[in-house]
Amino acid sequence: MESLIIEATEDSPKILFDTLSNRFVISGESRPENAGKFFTPVINWIIRFEETLSQRKQEKNIDLPLVFVFNLEYFNSTSAKYIKDVLLIIKKFVDQGYPFIVEWHYDKRDDDMLDAGNEFSDTVELKFEFVEY
């Protein structure tokens, strides 16, 4: 499956889902004018990625960890709902036995962003690795 790359804009985050390095990064600021229009292709890509995972499993090529990175400076409440949707899919993959790691990056001075990460982790019942910068 092809990698997914969407460049950041003033109001939407950068998406870099790299199927070669197995790093899937959402970074920047997220308050798109139409959150549905922005996130739907991103979420559809992740849903379709299940086929690739299943293929790799058959080829016994699934040992490497798959790292999902949230490195967000800011996201609005509408984006929060879509971030939850992304996390629920990753949760499903983890439950199926795929070795996903979720990294939540945050500025060490930004307690709200750390709280948001903890809240998402509890809500979707998925362990995060917290990375401060």
Partner: peptide, 18 residues
């Protein structure tokens, strides 16, 4: 001078405008 407060204000501004 406190970036944590800046981000809080920024975030509340966006939600207030929405």
């Amino acid at each position: 001078s406190d970036p944590a407060i800046d981000r809080k204000i920024y975030s509340i501004l966006v939600e207030s405008i929405e």
